[in-house]
Design a binder for these strands. Sequence first.
DNA 1: ATTCGCGTCACCCGAAAGGATGATTTTGCC
DNA 2: GGCAAAATCATCCTTTCGGGTGACGCGAAT
Lengths: 144, 144
Amino acid sequence: MLKHTLIFGAVAGLLIACLKFIEYRWLVVAHSVEIYGALVAAVFAAVGIWLGLKLTREKVVVKEVQAPAEFIRDDAKVAELGLTPRELEMLVLIALGLSNKEIADKVFVSENTVKTHLARIFDKLGAKRRTQAVERGRALRLIP
Amino acid sequence: MLKHTLIFGAVAGLLIACLKFIEYRWLVVAHSVEIYGALVAAVFAAVGIWLGLKLTREKVVVKEVQAPAEFIRDDAKVAELGLTPRELEMLVLIALGLSNKEIADKVFVSENTVKTHLARIFDKLGAKRRTQAVERGRALRLIP
DNA sequence: ATTCGCGTCACCCGAAAGGATGATTTTGCC
DNA sequence: GGCAAAATCATCCTTTCGGGTGACGCGAAT
């Protein structure tokens, strides 16, 4: 803002000087005052419009959008916790509400295997129950 | 836009006429041209700025930002499912990963009461497990 | 070649969760 | 006061979960 004003002042001074110079060179004819005035008016009007545009170009309307907020896994935290891909997969499945048996059938392993995976997940996440593991998983952005 | 331009022209003409009039009245002194030019410059600069403001007043930049996306419970669905306030409360507690015992202690009821509440929740949500109830609750926007 | 991480599976046992059912109390409402 | 919904608690029984432990195969890294 201040910068713009200063530029405006400088430009104005320069223009006046130029016009003054021109006036005494070859515009010393009849009605030179009118021509001079019109020129000054036109130039300053243009500069003024430009200034006005400059001053108001910052106008911004902040529009809040309910974004789909797609899930982005915090891989850094996954690594930090030492969660293996398989464990992460199991975590997602329990978050979907599947039982150990259902998970076992879905990924073609025994229910015992699922249980050991879950036991390690609980250990790494510090969870006592599967629901708590899901909650922590969500809070840590490990699962959607 | 056209209207503004016309107004601008009219004002400009009027001002020029006024200045012309004034010029031959009492500004016929030494350096009158400089004073005249300065006046015209000032007036037209002002008008130009005003015009620029007018022209750009509608110019807005829509900046989309990520909304906080706070949770809004779908009360319609709550009513539709016939979930009571107490049941809803229990649902959020199991979503937080609490055990039946912990919930009982937290809300000062017996564990049996919690279990009956949960049984009804499972029935109303069509869930077989607490994890599934949580998942459904989230999907239906009943809980955060 | 050995180690290590990962995934796999098994068994035992106790704890937690869930299903079914019945009963009592509280509360809001006509 | 009486009714209906909600909330409360209980008991019995079955299923599921979770903890603990041990073990095996495989592939990558050392």
